[in-house]
Design a protein around this nucleic acid. Structure first.
Lengths: 110, 110
DNA sequence: TGGTAATATCGATATATGTCAATGCAACGC
DNA sequence: GCGTTGCATTGACATATATCGATATTACCA
């Protein structure tokens, strides 16, 4: 007897997920998460020097991570004098939440 | 005049974020997101062969990605005969949502 | 104008990651 | 047992990423 198929073929999701994966990639570093958590909890903006002081990273590395967060538009920045101040983007959480919802939709009880 | 400090020093978040970052790393690949999205939408379980058929990846690569999802306990699997069937872990969404909440807490309107 | 301080960028390097061919292993049918 | 099929593992390789020293840039102050 010939082997039967394993099962009715499942529909594999066809949505393009490259951009979503890219955003998760931005989140896939503990120091960037620390930066985001700090910015999310800050009353106001946070100076780059605070990160440089507090994180176990050299200044170019801090700057590198901030650029990745900027490019992903999860944070915004503003220079005042020699200093640069960062804020979390107002829609940062919603953007991540929306992606999570699109990948694993919340089951609503009927 | 001497330059003043940039600002009252901000408290940089001290929580350990390595494990959180690791979970986001698991999500930081478009093919793994496709697998999760497929499993999340499946009525029931999904056979590995469906992924091998539908994704533009060779079988060892599919197996590699599934192992990463397994190790992160975002999916479970069960062998029946020659075939192996995967399911999304029941707490997958909640675990990711909890991390998002811990990094960027939702602002509750007062 | 010249010096200093804060941040960004560049270049180099070590490590991590995605991919696949080759191989191993388990289960099935004959 | 033997061949076949589905999936996992291994090993190799190319690319991506985190990190840092060196340097550039910008703004301030004397």
């Amino acid at each position: 007897m010939s082997m039967q198929r394993c099962c009715p073929p499942a529909r594999v999701d066809q949505a393009e997920r490259t951009a979503d994966a890219s955003l998760f990639k931005v989140l896939a570093d503990p120091h960037r998460l620390t930066m985001l958590a700090t910015l999310a909890r800050a009353e106001d903006e946070v100076c780059v020097c605070d990160f440089t002081d507090a994180l176990p990273l050299e200044q170019p590395t801090v700057s590198h991570h901030l650029k990745i967060l900027r490019d992903a538009r999860l944070v915004t920045c503003e220079r005042r004098g020699t200093w640069v101040y960062y804020r979390i983007a107002p829609d940062a959480r919603d953007r991540i939440g929306a992606i999570l919802q699109s990948v694993i939709p919340e089951k609503v009880l009927v």
